[in-house]
Nucleic acid binder design. Structure first.
Lengths: 217, 217
DNA sequence: CTCCTTTTTTTTGAATGCATAATTAGATTT
DNA sequence: AAATCTAATTATGCATTCAAAAAAAAGGAG
């Protein structure tokens, strides 16, 4: 069952702006052109500004007094800090998922896992990273902790713009894959403790950080 | 050095509304009276509504289409989930703080610890809980991870309205105190691993949850 | 008196308006 | 021509206005 899509105008606008930032259309450090975006979206400044307030709170933009919103730069430090927190949240998610995951959810993750392996074999980095990401998200969802899911998704959003652009070294890549094997094994045994500790050591984040660090700031 | 206090009107308003919710002036489930609050704060509806969008994103209020904002109810489940995440974040904070805490920060936490012990001895629950809270916050700050600090503070905000109203049983209370002793010990040794594991087992949250559960929803 | 319908009032969501601050463009001086 | 000062333009922050929706009040039937 899907969540009720509460369509609020400012919410729609926020999502569009988030996309523009993620896609790099709005460059880090650049100002957010209110008027132009209003025309582009066909809305007045009110809902756009409401959206900007939310985005500022989320860390996507910075509000400078009397000079509007600027796209926030993703510094190396912030990126590292974000991954640090996400890793910890994933560890918690793994622990909880071990106890709470449903059979269909497990089956879905297994399916994703084999997909991911296929992408690994064929060397398709883009697809690999996407599927990898979906697995991690699925584990978080399986935690059944709405607050956790919420916070995780928000952090994930923030780093979206540097995601999927990384080049993994083959060493790290193969290690990440073997860790994923262990994760699936732990999940099948519904061993949350084990899954949690694998995830908290899982160096996916570290890999990405090292690969992405140069992109930030 | 304190952060630059960027005073935005909507930010101020958001804080005021948060306070009203925390203090119970705005009851859970009740509607947020825009007009009245505007008069009370002496601002127009624009900044108030901007604040409400942010508060909705933070989980303080819910926005219902064409019927404005309602104060979000803090259900037992949400409360439990929130503490679950906070506990995990504190564990991470402890780990990081062990490696990164500065001498003045440590001294400050030690001072707070003795204060807390004094409140324990004199049976002053209110002051005890407040100081206890300050210690946990100080550890989070000592992690030097801005993202972590940010997320933690936000979650802390959300549960503020049920904080400091709990009645702890003396058993739990004494155990919590002894755990705090161990925490301080670990901090002195700058043993992040140890501190992290103490915090992740620390049942302060559980205690509060059990005491607070009846208050929620 | 209770329940339902219709009208009035209030509230909400979003656009517009306006004063102030910031930016740009142009003029003046060196 | 470079630099500084001034005027025009534009952008921003907040208040106000307006149409549509919801809530409340008044009226009428059973």
């Amino acid at each position: 069952m899907d969540k009720i899509r509460q369509s609020t105008l400012h919410g729609e606008v926020a999502e569009r702006v988030r996309d523009l930032i993620a896609q790099g259309v709005l460059a880090p450090g650049s100002r957010v052109p209110e008027k132009q975006l209003c025309e582009q979206f066909g809305v007045s400044r009110t809902p756009l500004r409401e959206a900007l307030k939310v985005l500022a709170h989320e860390g996507f933009v910075e509000l400078l007094p009397n000079r509007g919103a600027r796209v926030a730069k993703l510094t190396r430090t912030t990126l590292k800090n974000t991954f640090e927190v996400m890793q910890s949240l994933e560890a918690l998610a793994g622990e909880l998922a071990g106890a709470r995951i449903s059979d269909p959810e497990l089956a879905n993750i297994e399916a994703l896992h084999y997909q991911m392996l296929a992408h690994y074999k064929s060397g398709n980095m883009q697809e690999y990273l996407l599927t990898n990401q979906q697995i991690h998200e699925a584990i978080v969802v399986a935690s059944q902790n709405d607050v956790l899911i919420d916070v995780y998704k928000n952090l994930n959003h923030r780093v979206r713009r540097v995601r999927f652009t990384a080049e993994l070294s083959s060493d790290y890549w193969s290690q990440a894959v073997s860790e994923h094997e262990a994760m699936i094994e732990a999940l099948r045994k519904r061993d949350g403790k084990e899954l949690g500790s694998i995830l908290s050591c899982h160096l996916r984040n570290k890999v990405e950080v090292s690969a992405l660090e140069e992109m930030a700031e």
